[in-house]
């Protein structure tokens, strides 16, 4: 399972390195979304700073949906699905590999968007750095849930529009907990209860994906 996971993750990251969709399409979209949200808040610096955690996770939600569709799209291109299916890869390994690759891509994107938040929304640098571990966990859990739902919707008509509808309930606790922990890191407040939610979601989504990914793929 681990060998398959590493093989699939390496392949997915190589595809991104070759296609540069993340660099030239997803990142500019994310940064522009953040910039527009900042402009919509007006010139007041204090308002932008307090809204920054929520805006960050809103932008990451959009970015994650794009990248899930991309991650599953390469598997379901004409002819690719059958060719890869007959390789007989362990579905749990495929799930973990795709989740790992998506997590790495989300971390890279998140790092750039966080940098954009510091520059355009004037979030405190020290508080933003303190929020990075919680952001990493939240994005990892979103990657796990997104990989699962991506496999489910990939075989259905209109996957790009169905995916947000299905994933939002799964993402909701992560978005709330992520936003609260980011705010707590910036402005002070309790952290541990938000960490519990994110860690439970991460472990839960990983466990469900490992158990069900093969069924979801075949469905």
């Amino acid at each position: 399972m681990i060998r398959t996971a590493l093989l699939v993750a390496r392949k997915d990251l190589l595809i991104e390195a070759r296609s540069r969709v993340l660099l030239w399409q997803v990142l500019p979209f994310g940064l522009l979304s953040l910039l527009l949200c900042g402009l919509a808040l007006g010139p007041a610096q204090a308002g932008k700073s307090s809204a920054a955690p929520g805006l960050f996770y809103l932008v990451m939600l959009f970015v994650t949906l794009l990248m899930i569709n991309r991650s599953q799209g390469v598997e379901h291109a004409a002819g690719t699905r059958e060719s890869v299916a007959v390789l007989g890869l362990d579905p749990a390994g495929v799930f973990l590999g795709k989740t790992l690759a998506l997590t790495v891509e989300l971390w890279l994107t998140g790092a750039v968007i966080v940098g954009g938040a510091v520059l355009t929304l004037h979030t405190a640098f020290a508080g933003t750095v303190a929020a990075l571990p919680s952001i990493a966990v939240a994005l990892g859990a979103m990657a796990a849930a997104g990989t699962m739902y991506g496999a489910l919707t990939a075989g259905i008509d209109g996957p790009a529009t169905l995916l947000p509808v299905l994933t939002l309930p799964a993402f909701a606790p992560l978005l709330v907990a992520g936003e609260r922990s980011f705010s707590s890191a910036l402005h002070g407040g309790a952290l541990w209860e938000w960490w519990v939610i994110m860690l439970v979601a991460l472990v839960g989504y990983l466990a469900i994906g490992v158990l069900l990914y093969g069924v979801l793929e075949d469905s």
């Binding site: 690719t80 060719s83 390789l87």
Partner: peptide, 26 residues
């Protein structure tokens, strides 16, 4: 047993195959 069968056969589809962004060697 469908997954077990897949490991025993080779498939060439009429739409092409594999990852478009990767090279032949990759």
């Amino acid at each position: 047993h469908r997954r077990a069968i897949r490991r025993n056969v080779g498939w060439l589809g009429h739409e092409g195959s594999f990852y478009q962004d990767l090279s032949v060697m990759e």
